[in-house]
Simulated scan of single mutants.
Amino acid sequence: MSARRAPRRLAIRPRATVLATGAAVAALTLSACGAGGTSGGSSDTKFIQGKGGVDTVARGDRKHAPELTGKTLDGDKLDLADYKGKIVVINVWGSWCTPCRAEAPNLVKVAKDTEADGVRFVGINTRDPDPANAIQFEKEFKVDYPSLYDPIGKLMLRFPKGSLNPQAIPTTIVLDREGRIAARALTPLSEESLRKMLKPLIEEK
């Protein structure tokens, strides 16, 4: 009678997971329709975490916003440099994002009310593979300010490390009249909280 052979053990080697590099990886760090963490992780970050998810930067510590140019959802060319001398509200949104839908009427209302104060609104539409969905969103909520079309998040990655950069969808970033990043909200904004965010910058001389 032959001896039984011990069962062979197969050596299972873990398969290497190949991750996409560059912009694609960084883009995936953004939380879809959720709050993010603090910006960049840089030791020289000098923003002040405020209540209600709104962070601000003292006037002397602000960093310049990156160059933001591209095509809008309407197919027009937009360059943020054209808003020099204005306070600019940049709202990162997606048509699929429920909190974005909740805050949209507030943004539209405040945009109209503050235009005479030198405030301009610009959207960055992201994670919408089909721009038709985003265009329908704008029609539904009567959004009459332009939005750059950024389906894979390249524009968001241009914000400097250590600044108040976008880390969630929605994110709202406010630039002062010198084009510097002054405030950020990683949460959907009420009309009241948006007005509070803008008031100190409107009063700056």
Rank of each mutant, 00 (worst) to 15 (best):
M1E: 11
S2W: 12
A3T: 10
R4S: 10
R5E: 11
A6T: 08
A6H: 06
L10P: 02
I12C: 09
R13S: 06
P14A: 14
A20N: 07
A20Y: 12
T21I: 07
A23G: 05
V25L: 14
V25E: 13
A27S: 14
T29G: 07
L30R: 15
C33N: 03
C33I: 04
G37C: 08
G37V: 10
D44F: 13
D44K: 07
K46H: 03
K46G: 03
V54R: 05
A58Y: 08
A58N: 13
R59L: 09
G60W: 08
G60V: 09
D61H: 14
K63P: 05
P66R: 06
L68F: 02
K71F: 03
T72K: 11
D74T: 13
L78M: 02
A81H: 14
K84H: 14
I90R: 03
I90N: 01
V92L: 11
V92R: 11
V92E: 04
V92D: 01
G94S: 15
C97F: 13
C100N: 04
R101G: 01
A102R: 01
E103G: 11
A104C: 01
N106E: 10
L107S: 04
L107H: 13
L107Y: 10
V110H: 09
A111E: 15
K112L: 05
T114V: 14
E115A: 15
A116F: 08
G123K: 13
G123T: 13
I124V: 15
N125F: 14
N125I: 11
T126H: 05
R127T: 02
D128K: 14
D130T: 11
A134K: 15
I135M: 10
F137N: 02
K139V: 03
K139P: 02
K139G: 10
E140L: 00
E140F: 03
K142F: 05
K142M: 07
K142Y: 05
V143M: 15
D144M: 04
D144I: 06
P151V: 00
I152E: 15
K154D: 07
F159V: 12
F159W: 11
F159N: 12
P160E: 07
G162H: 13
S163D: 09
P166S: 11
P166C: 09
Q167M: 11
T171W: 13
I173S: 08
R177D: 00
I181P: 00
A182V: 09
A185C: 09
L186N: 12
P188R: 14
L189R: 09
L189Y: 12
S190R: 08
L194C: 10
R195A: 10
R195D: 03
M197H: 12
P200Y: 02
P200L: 00
K205G: 01
K205T: 01
